[in-house]
C-alpha cells in the first residue's frame, strides 16, 4: 500500500512553526514511516507535486507571492491544515494591518533609512493590502493554533490525520 503524502509550505511566518515541526525530534522517523514527505522548505524539492494528501501551511497570506502559492497549493491538496497562529489568525504579520501598506513601506524604506532610501520594486513580492488568515483566502480543513503549536500537538494531529481521523486539538491555545 502506498503511504499518504505530506507537504509543508511557508508563507508570511517566522519559520518558528517549522522549527516546532523539527522539535518532534525522533518522532520525525515515525512520521516518515507513516507518510512520504514530498514538498517542504526542509527538503530539496523545487515544484509542488500534482497531488498531495496533506499540507501544513505556516504563515499568513501577506504578499502577492503568498497568494499565488496558496491558490496553487489549495488546488493540488486534499487536506489543508492552517499551521500556527500566523496561518490561523494572521497573528504578528497582521500588526501592520492597522497601519496600511504605504505608510508602512515609507517608514521602513524611506523615513528610517539614511543610505539610498527607496521602496524596492523588483525581487521583493508586493504586499497585499492586509495580511490575512489562510482561511479568509482559501478553504482550510484543519486548524492548529499556537505560536508555535507544540511538537506534541503537531505529532498527535499528524498521526490522527494520517490515519484518517479528525485530530483532537483539545488544549490547543492561541499564543501558546
Amino acid at each position: 500500500m502506498t503511504k499518504p503524502t505530506l507537504a509543508t509550505i511557508w508563507l508570511d511566518g517566522c519559520s518558528g512553526c517549522h522549527m516546532s515541526f523539527l522539535d518532534m525530534d525522533e518522532r520525525l522517523f515515525d512520521i516518515a514511516e507513516r507518510a512520504d514527505i514530498v514538498y517542504s522548505p526542509l527538503i530539496d524539492v523545487k515544484a509542488y507535486p500534482e497531488h498531495v494528501d496533506f499540507c501544513l501551511v505556516e504563515g499568513a497570506v501577506s504578499s502577492e507571492d503568498d497568494l499565488r502559492k496558496i491558490l496553487h497549493v489549495r488546488q493540488r491538496t486534499g487536506t489543508l491544515i492552517s499551521f500556527g497562529d500566523c496561518a490561523v489568525t494572521a497573528n504578528v504579520p497582521a500588526m501592520r494591518n492597522p497601519i496600511g501598506v504605504q505608510p508602512l513601506l515609507d517608514r521602513a524604506y524611506i523615513e528610517n533609512v539614511t543610505i539610498n532610501p527607496g521602496i524596492p520594486v523588483s525581487v521583493v513580492p508586493k504586499l497585499l493590502a492586509m495580511a490575512r488568515p489562510v482561511h479568509r483566502v482559501v478553504k482550510v480543513d484543519v486548524y492548529l493554533p499556537g505560536c508555535p503549536p507544540s511538537a506534541d500537538l503537531i505529532y498527535q494531529s499528524l498521526v490522527d490525520l494520517l490515519a484518517g481521523r479528525t485530530p483532537d486539538t483539545h488544549g490547543a491555545r492561541f499564543g501558546r
Binding site: S82, V88, T89, A90, A94, N97, P98, I99, M130, R132, P133, H135, R136, V140, Y143, L144, P145, T169, H170, G171, A172, R173, F174, G175
Partner: peptide, 21 residues
C-alpha cells in the same frame, strides 16, 4: 484566552477588522 480554550475555538469564522487603536 481561557474562554477560547474552554469553548474550543481554534479559528475565527467572522471577518477581521484590525482597527487602528
Amino acid at each position: 484566552q481561557d474562554l477560547a480554550e474552554k469553548l474550543q475555538i481554534d479559528h475565527f469564522e467572522l471577518p477581521v477588522i484590525n482597527p487602528s487603536v
